[in-house]
């Protein structure tokens, strides 16, 4: 199945891309072998909601908001992880797809606070989702056990992104994992010890990937609690991290006269979106 990767001119690897043709919503589309159905949708400009998916992480396909109909498949399939195959016939605009997405949004919104989760509320109106019809999330106080970031698990949708960023996909620290099972599953350290007692090295990569603001910079948390967090008032400035010679690209999010969070673009070839404690948190003095 795998294609040989011949050496390129510069000694690097050049992938010979075999193209695959499939059909999405009646339109033909060609994508390189190894692409997902989601890639094909994107290429056609078919808008697809995703929550647990991120370009720089291995898909876990856990949230199921990206499902599409695939001819020949008994159930819907997750477009973010299902590899495109020649002659696949995919539909994204059917009642069945819309109804599943609506239900996933309702199930999520009825169980956790999704108000800070990107486009969640837009999708709710787009899919006519009314989460309250299934229940309302219970509130639990955020875990504040260090100076750099807080963990507000009443916002946690269990998307595994922080686990992947802390583990195999970036940091290789394995400080936080999925624990328990079913309705009792939650992200935690071993025996739920505090982060300073755990293996955590405070790289903040988990904060960087969290889609729901369950993980927040301390400053962000303070502002949100005070009702002063305001994305509209924030500007983003790109710079290169001054701490070492690697040259990580930083995005400084500024509200008023202070830096309220630091991210790195997930498509950056240097960082893949991930940083270390200095780049992520070492800007407290910059005002």
């Amino acid at each position: 199945m795998r294609t040989e990767k011949p050496k390129g001119r510069d000694g690097g690897l050049v992938q010979i891309e075999r193209m695959i043709e499939l059909e999405v919503d009646g339109r033909a589309v060609r994508v390189p072998e190894g692409s997902t159905i989601l890639d094909a949708c994107k290429k056609l400009g078919v808008d697809t909601p995703t929550l647990c998916f991120a370009e720089n992480l291995t898909p876990v396909n856990a949230c199921r908001v990206c499902v599409v109909e695939l001819e020949g498949s008994r159930t819907l399939v997750a477009s973010c992880s299902r590899k495109a195959e020649p002659k696949m016939v995919v539909r994204t605009d059917t009642e069945r797809v819309r109804s599943s997405r609506k239900m996933v949004l309702e199930l999520l919104g009825s169980s956790v606070n999704m108000s800070a989760a990107g486009e969640f509320e837009n999708w709710c109106s787009q899919y006519h989702a009314e989460p309250e019809r299934l229940g309302t999330p219970s509130h639990a106080p955020a875990v504040i056990d260090n100076d750099l970031f807080v963990r507000d698990y009443s916002r946690c949708m269990l998307c595994y992104k922080c686990v992947e960023a802390c583990g195999d996909d970036a940091q290789h620290t394995f400080a936080i994992v999925m624990t328990g099972r079913g309705g009792e599953a939650k992200i935690a350290t071993e025996f739920d010890v505090s982060l300073p007692e755990s293996a955590c090295v405070f790289c903040g990569n988990c904060v960087g990937v969290c889609p729901t603001a369950a993980l927040q910079f301390r400053r962000e948390h303070t502002l949100r609690e005070a009702g002063e967090w305001d994305l509209a008032k924030q500007t983003v400035t790109k710079t290169v991290c001054p701490y070492c010679g690697v040259g990580c690209v930083l995005e400084l999010h500024v509200q008023g006269d202070e830096i309220v969070r630091v991210t790195s673009p997930s498509d950056s070839s240097v960082t893949d979106g991930h940083l270390c404690v200095k780049g992520r948190f070492g800007w407290g003095y910059v005002r």
């Binding site: 876990v60 169980s111 949708m157 999925m178 328990g180 599953a185």
Partner: peptide, 11 residues
């Protein structure tokens, strides 16, 4: 007995 991995089944 749900493993808790995916939203439709866990919730």
């Amino acid at each position: 007995e749900s493993c808790g991995q995916c939203v439709p089944c866990r919730v």
